[in-house]
Each structure stands twice: as C-alpha cells, then as structure tokens.
C-alpha cells in the first residue's frame, strides 16, 4: 500500500472540499449584499476571492507535485486531473461572485426597482449545486453528480424568467434600463456559475468511470 501517497491524495480532496465551501460562501455573500444593498459586505468579497485564488494555486501545486513525484495511474490519476479541473471551475465561480459584487457597488446606493425574489432563489439553487457536487466528488457518487447537473435546468428557467420580467419592465419604463440591465447581468453571472458546476459534475463522472461525457 502507498499509504503516504494515499494520504496526499486525501489532503487534496479535503482542500477541494474547503475551496468548494469558500465558493459557496462567496456566492451567498455576493447575492445577500446585493439584496440588502450592503456595500461594506460587498467590498469584502474581493478579499474572499483572493483567498479562493490562493487556494486554487495551492491545490494546483499539490497536484503537480503528486504527478511529478508519484506518477499516479488509473483512478489515482483521474482523481488528480479531476481535482485540477474542478479548482479551475471553482475559481471562475469566485470571479463571477466578484462580478456580482461590482454591480452591488455600482447600484447599491439607488433604490431597487423591485424587491429581489428570483435572484436570491436562483442563488439558493446554485449554492446547493456547489455543495452537492463537492459532496459527490468526495463520495465519488456519480448518481449525485448527475442529479446535481439536472438542477442546472431549474437555474436556466429562472434566468430566462428574470430576463423576460426585466425586459417587460424596461419597455414600460425606460428610465430603469441601467439598473435592470445590471440585474440581468447578475442573473447571467449566476447562470455561468451553474454552468461551471455542471463541468464539475462531468469531471466527477470521468473520475469514477473513466468516461468523459457531456451532461445537458
């Protein structure tokens, strides 16, 4: 048994789990600060994202080291390449949360054109997707990964609804165009996060089965 190597591999998985939790938290914070128009909270998001970026680099280095020193094969190899792909997607999710926080800083001082309902709802699903997909990675559970990937359809539906609703509002009152467009972008950023999450689910299936397949 390569106990030392197995330990290193477990460490990487644990770090991916931690990074996943950080990303889930940053999405939560981004949408909450927008909803509550809390500029202070929005400002801290950049810092949170820096931590996620550092985590990304740290895990990447760990993976490269294991590849170079241990020459992993078969499922071990797939686990490491999967971790490398997952952290890239997680890192992008963090960037999207930053994009949302920039919108908060931009429109945070003006009254919201409507109470935000669908955006927080969308964010809730996205956060659950992140949590479950990381869980599927740790447990190597392809059924859960597939189930999570299906949730992307709900996200897409809400996104479409947000766009339709805001477009209607713009037609009725063009003065709100700027804020409405910004809110559409928030929807777009959340939708991108869900797409990155689908990539993660595809990679988990590859890690377990060795087969690369497109979901959705």
């Amino acid at each position: 048994m390569r106990l030392h190597f197995q330990q290193n591999l477990e460490d990487i998985k644990r770090k991916v789990l931690r990074m996943g939790l950080m990303v889930e938290a940053i999405v939560d914070k981004a949408v909450n600060s927008l909803k509550e128009q809390n500029l202070e909270l929005a400002r801290t998001i950049i810092e949170d994202d820096d931590k996620i970026d550092m985590m990304d680099l740290e895990i990447e280095m760990d993976c490269i080291k294991l590849l170079a020193l241990q020459q992993p094969l078969a499922k071990d190899l797939r686990t490491i390449t999967t971790a490398l792909k997952i952290i890239t997607d997680l890192e992008r999710m963090g960037d999207n949360a930053v994009n949302i926080s920039k919108i908060t800083l931009d429109i945070g001082k003006e009254p919201l054109i409507k109470p935000l309902i669908d955006i927080p709802k969308m964010a809730g699903i996205v956060q659950e997707m992140i949590r479950l997909s990381i869980d599927a990675f740790i447990k190597e559970d392809i059924y859960l990964a597939k189930k999570v990937a299906q949730m992307d359809q709900d996200v897409d539906e809400i996104y479409q609804r947000i766009i339709d609703e805001l477009l209607d509002m713009i037609i009725k009152d063009p003065k709100i165009t700027k804020q409405a467009t910004k809110l559409m972008f928030v929807g777009r950023f959340l939708e991108r996060i869900a797409d990155h999450n689908t990539n993660i689910c595809e990679r988990i299936i590859y890690m377990v089965t060795g087969k690369l397949e497109e979901i959705n």
Partner: peptide, 10 residues
C-alpha cells in the same frame, strides 16, 4: 489490475 498499477497491492 487497478490495485497493481496504483500500488495498492497486498
């Protein structure tokens, strides 16, 4: 095979 090539043998 997996056990052998990944060093999980014995």
């Amino acid at each position: 095979t997996e056990d052998y090539i990944t060093g999980r043998f014995g």
